[in-house]
Design a protein around this nucleic acid. Sequence first.
DNA 1: ACAAAAGTGTTAATTTTACACCCATGC
DNA 2: GCATGGGTGTAAAATTAACACTTTTGT
Lengths: 247, 247
Amino acid sequence: MTRSQLTHEDKAFLSTYDPATYERPAVTVDLVILTILDDRLVLLLVQRNEPPYRKKWALPGGFVRVGNGKSSRGEDLLEAAQRELSEETGLPTDDILLAQIGAFGAPMRDPRMRVVSIAYAALVRPTLAPFIQAGGDAARTEWTALNDAMKMPLAFDHPEIASKALQWLRDQLVRSSIARSLLPPTFSIAELRRVHEAILDVSIDPGNFRKRFLRMIDDSVIEQAPGRRITASKPASVYRFVDTGRS
Amino acid sequence: MTRSQLTHEDKAFLSTYDPATYERPAVTVDLVILTILDDRLVLLLVQRNEPPYRKKWALPGGFVRVGNGKSSRGEDLLEAAQRELSEETGLPTDDILLAQIGAFGAPMRDPRMRVVSIAYAALVRPTLAPFIQAGGDAARTEWTALNDAMKMPLAFDHPEIASKALQWLRDQLVRSSIARSLLPPTFSIAELRRVHEAILDVSIDPGNFRKRFLRMIDDSVIEQAPGRRITASKPASVYRFVDTGRS
DNA sequence: ACAAAAGTGTTAATTTTACACCCATGC
DNA sequence: GCATGGGTGTAAAATTAACACTTTTGT
């Protein structure tokens, strides 16, 4: 909805409009940054330096910049998530999938004040994960297996957010080629299978998975790529997702 | 996260903490209130009385109550959605499914000020729909076919929100028994089929749908109910969703 | 030679899809 | 009677699932 679509009446109204000073919540973005390490689905936790929940592990996140609300309006929610992602990890955000997974606004979720947080999942290729460096005000950052993280006493309502992210990821896995964002540009059948196994936390018959995979090739979702992947035994062919124009 | 889980350090910190006066966005909830009328999926639109977008059709919605942010913290996001739902429709909210479908916070989505809106879908049984009465500050309210609505010049970014709601509903339909919320307590096979047809906007073979339906009976998702449904021709048996304890 | 992981094949069970047809009711 | 929509059956095709087997490599 751009300003140019407003009517004359709207513009006249706005020139005299003074936004009422309602009480407003703070708005933040929280990130569930995920990748696959050692065939396990892991997320990035930061250890808090400041109260509340000092020394507790938490999801990275921060305030959405809003400008002064009139002449400058600040950033979109996705932009805020991208900024936080790059602040916390030092990684370029253009190769990392960010998807909104929900809004969390329980009145007492932050003891300091009323905060509504928009949660995003970030899927990082494992090849990028080693380059992550602690940033911002975090004392330490650490990759933690999602299974373990959900049993930890994370700060705020972050266990709930992490759980929602896992739900979201599992849903996406069946319905789309989301695994693409958790793999190098080319990958073997077994590598894709292990991503599925890590996300769904099940083991999958290699033979049967292969058949599903070959069907994806029939459907032109995936195509063979040049080269082979060296493994502990027989080398495997590598494949890539067919580029559909969209980033 | 309740207050009792805070450490002593946290409590000491909080007693001296003065929430910084960051600029904050207004936070609202917007509702995509859906039901099935004449075998069509329809949503409730209200005609705006005030600028901006005066006379334009819009989704019902309103501000989340936040209290003063300290001693009183106001309502949860879902509570805000429930309150708006009952204000706008006059219906009791306890029989209406409300699910969060996303947060929308583009900087210029509201020309008056920076607003972040949490969108909820509300599924209303068609038996309740006739009792809806215009409430609040809306000039008129009207059920509109979702197909048509998405071609209308709705106010703000409401087309985007409506589209997200449809996506959400279609996803849920395959994965859960969400159709329950759009049907009377008991229903015929054909009635459930027509709900599916309306939501997916396809026609479904009655014989094949029946077989899927019977499988749901095998799985104890659905059971036969007493009575029959009078139709234009042969009367149909009626069924109900098995009560699984959860509302 | 052997272990390990890639890759292939077989079979039964289940599910999907298209379509033909019978049955009970209101008009 | 006959149109309408409920209800039933059949058969091909596609998918899933369990599992045995062969091939190619590194050590």
